[in-house]
Amino acid sequence: MPFIEENDLLELHKDIDKAQIINERLLDQIKFKNRELKRARLQRNIFGVITAIFFIGSLALGSFAFGLSSSPQTSDMDYVNVSWDSLDVIKRRMDNLRQQNEELSLVREFYLAKNFLEKEKIYSVQVKAFVDKNLNLASESLSNTLFVKTNPFYSYSLGNFETLEEAQKFRTELVSMGFKDAFVASYKEGKRIAIEDPN
């Protein structure tokens, strides 16, 4: 079986590391959005309480003023003056809260989809198997690699893919680089399930 050039292997691992960094950034964004969602709920609840207090206070003032208006100098109808500016501010605030709620719903849906994918099986391309555990290939700095014991061998695989098609495409690239024996295997919870069709 031919060996992969060290530069090519490092380039593959750099690409995998970049994807992993993007995933970590997305998880950080999800955590940030979750905090914003909690804050938005609290603000929405506070806004509702303040609105209710304002409404009750307005009714109390209106009924008090109605009781005082029985003198002949005042008209039979009392008017409550509310600034249009304050109504516009309240409306804009409500629209802003609705928009934040929609954004947080999208983030929550993404987070739930990611949790679902973690429970599903993944695909990886096995490039080598050893009788003895050989840690020279399994560097700490290389991510998205699998080093799994499949009795009596230790298998070394590259890449973690959600779909079989992605793994097969990666396998084709590795074969063109000289890894003629590379094949796609499926894994779930760190254990190999099956060897997939090379296609």
Rank of each mutant, 00 (worst) to 15 (best):
L26K: 12
L164F: 08
L10T: 04
F161Y: 13
F116A: 15
F55W: 14
E140M: 02
F130G: 15
D95Q: 08
E118I: 00
A185Q: 02
T163V: 10
S70N: 05
L137G: 12
R108S: 12
L135Q: 12
L174Q: 02
F32M: 13
I16K: 04
R108T: 08
V184P: 03
Q73M: 02
L59C: 15
A129W: 06
L87E: 09
L164D: 07
L137S: 11
T163P: 12
K169C: 09
V89L: 09
D28W: 03
K14P: 00
L27A: 14
T145S: 06
V131G: 11
Y79W: 03
L117H: 07
D8T: 10
R39H: 09
N45H: 14
A138F: 12
D78F: 01
E118G: 04
M177K: 12
F54N: 15
P152T: 06
I4H: 01
R93T: 09
V49L: 14
S139Q: 15
I122R: 00
K133L: 09
V127P: 04
L174C: 07
N134L: 09
L135N: 12
N81F: 03
S86H: 00
S75D: 07
S186M: 03
D15I: 00
N23K: 08
D95M: 06
S83D: 05
E24R: 06
Q29G: 10
S155I: 08
K149G: 01
K133W: 00
R35F: 09
F153M: 15
E173S: 13
I22D: 14
L164N: 10
I30Y: 11
F183R: 04
K119W: 02
V82G: 04
F183W: 00
A185Y: 01
Y79S: 06
L87M: 14
V89Y: 11
I53Q: 14
F183V: 05
F54I: 09
V175Y: 01
F153Y: 15
T145N: 04
Q99C: 05
S139G: 09
F130T: 13
I16S: 13
N134Y: 08
V184T: 04
I195M: 06
I53N: 14
I46N: 15
S155M: 02
R93A: 11
L174D: 03
R25E: 13
L117F: 09
S157E: 07
R41Q: 12
Y79H: 08
E140G: 05
L135G: 11
K180A: 11
L164S: 11
G57S: 15
E165I: 07
V184L: 04
R98M: 08
F116D: 15
W84Q: 00
F161R: 02
R98A: 10
F110R: 10
K191T: 08
M94H: 10
Q168A: 12
I16C: 08
I21Q: 14
G67V: 00
V49W: 07
F32P: 04
G48Q: 10
L158S: 07
A138E: 14
T145M: 06
P198F: 06
S141Q: 14
D197G: 00
F3R: 05
L112Y: 07
D181E: 13
K114Q: 13
W84G: 05
L9S: 05
D78G: 01
K119V: 02
F32H: 14
N160R: 09
K33Q: 11
